[in-house]
Amino acid sequence: MSVTSDKRAPGVRISDLSVVYRTGAGELPAVRGVDLELEPGTITGVVGESGSGKSTLALSMLNAVQPPGRIRSGSVEIDGLGDVVTLGGDDLRKTRGRHVGYVFQAAQNSLNPLKTVGKQLLDLGRSHDVDDLPGLVKEARSLLDRMGLDGARVLDSYQHELSGGMRQRVGIMLALVLNAHVVVLDEPTTALDMITQATILRIIREVHEERGLTTLVITHDLGVVAEIADRLAVMYGGRLVEQGPTREVLGAPKHPYTQGLLQAIPRLVGDIDEARALPGRPPTLGTIPPDGCVFRERCAVRMDVCETGEPPVLTIGPRVVACHTAAGDGEQKETVTTGPTRGEEQA
């Protein structure tokens, strides 16, 4: 295993990012005006329902939004690398994997079914001009061993010979083996059962700390974020509606959507009559209202101003919330700045 130190973890600043998809009805925004800072060495969790733009946001970290989508404006600054949005060609290709590792959903079978894991590892090494291929294999094996697998056996296996939890670990290995220090995990535990999920989450947390990573986890499951993330960001209709230290946001959510979502989660304890589904449905690309608040259709505390007025982005200590009802709670700022707060330390 490589020598690690927290100093190597780069910070990431996503500023005013907007991503649009070209459709018959013109260009529609999937992500709009997102500001998000990933502090070095932290895990940030982005939570959203289908159509919230969370996966598009994740792809933007690699500048990998595919046509008909495109990044219309904004930047993704990674320490030591610059703005990923401006990169192209070979520079961009090298960035992916070397600097930013991406773990795809295991359920989507992101591995090639015709090649062993080891062969795919060598392909990865060659495409990144790695001279020391035996060293790469050694590193891969030690990473897999670290995650509780028999590394040598896994490298000799085809994907169909591996369980969902094992494939997910192979995905993590491939994302880290080139020594990337920014890692994006897209729905890392979807389609895994509870015990495997708990194991994968523990591994993500441990590897994150050992290797000194800056990690972004994208998920629809608040529980996943609650378990591992230092900071939580909630997306709805392409907007970041709330963010802050995980425990603070879960303990006292400020945005009506976050509040509704927490109330809508089936829980193991407590009064089941207190839980209720949010009315209405999440917006799709075509039904996101162009003006005003994106959540107003389903909001219990909506006001007249929500129809037309863009919700102000309020920064309250380490927390950020974009809602008209929160106005007066904090200071309104043009650009979002986040404090150096980690959820873990708050606890």
Binding site: Q197, L201, G223
Partner: peptide
């Protein structure tokens, strides 16, 4: 025990059994 705890809203059970994988 494997079900994620909503830290901030919930406190983990005192005798959580650390599950091993299948």
């Amino acid at each position: 025990s494997a079900i994620p705890v909503l830290h901030g809203l919930e406190v983990p059970g005192a005798e959580r059994v650390v599950p091993t994988e299948a």
